[in-house]
Amino acid sequence: MSSATSEIEPAAAEPMVFRWHEAEVASVTVVTPHVKSVRLRCGIAGRQRAGQHVDVRLTAADGYRASRSYSVASVPDGSGTLELLVEGLPDGEVSGWFFDCAGVGDRLELRGPIGGSFSWDGPDGGPLLLAGGGSGVVPLLAMLRRRAEVAPNIPAALIYSVRTRAEAIALSELEARDRDEPNFSLFLRTTREGEGRRIDAAVVDAALARIGTPKKVFLCGSNRFASPAADLIAAAGVPPGIVRTERFGA
């Protein structure tokens, strides 16, 4: 049995307090038919490790509040902003506001960054195996952005499962990285077009063959994606203690 608790990141052992900070919408950009990029100006921008999330809180005129967690897509860039990639969900109380209503100058609150377990930075090393389903690619995108800045020599592979190319988040960026970065490979699987293939043993083996023995594996997506993906990665001989997962409902 491998050990999870032996891998506590030194920074995470320090006491931390998450308090709410005001934030302002700096930009809203359509990314895919279902996803918008929202840039938020906030005092906590620039503190995040790649893969961490923030809590977002919205307040209605009568004081009613709702909050949800979102992975941060951006890496610290000195802009004083951070980027969320928000999927417009049919019943999404907070994502619905982002998707249908948010405009430049709107105010909300953030706290974080949160989640040291599912995060990566250059000193954590590699090779890196990343596997994302749908919007689960967002924290992995942040890791790839960080890696390109601080550790481009670390071999990395991303297995990205989406319904269609049109619904893939940051596909042009990922394909450009695959083309331009010699140590990064993208393995795209479209489940509802082309050959209609899901993540399988063949693509896991191909990704592992490209990067060698991984030091860290990050897996993020819906349960429908994450359960089989975790099983396939384990079946390929990856020790469970190096795998970190983040799942969301349904």
Binding site: T59, A60, A61, Y64, W97, D106, R107
Partner: peptide
């Protein structure tokens, strides 16, 4: 207590947010 605001004068309201009660 979170739905009752402690300081009405200093509360930041998010424009257009109604919420799903």
């Amino acid at each position: 207590p979170e739905t009752g605001l402690r300081d009405k004068g200093n509360v930041m309201v998010t424009r257009g947010f109604v919420g799903r009660r």
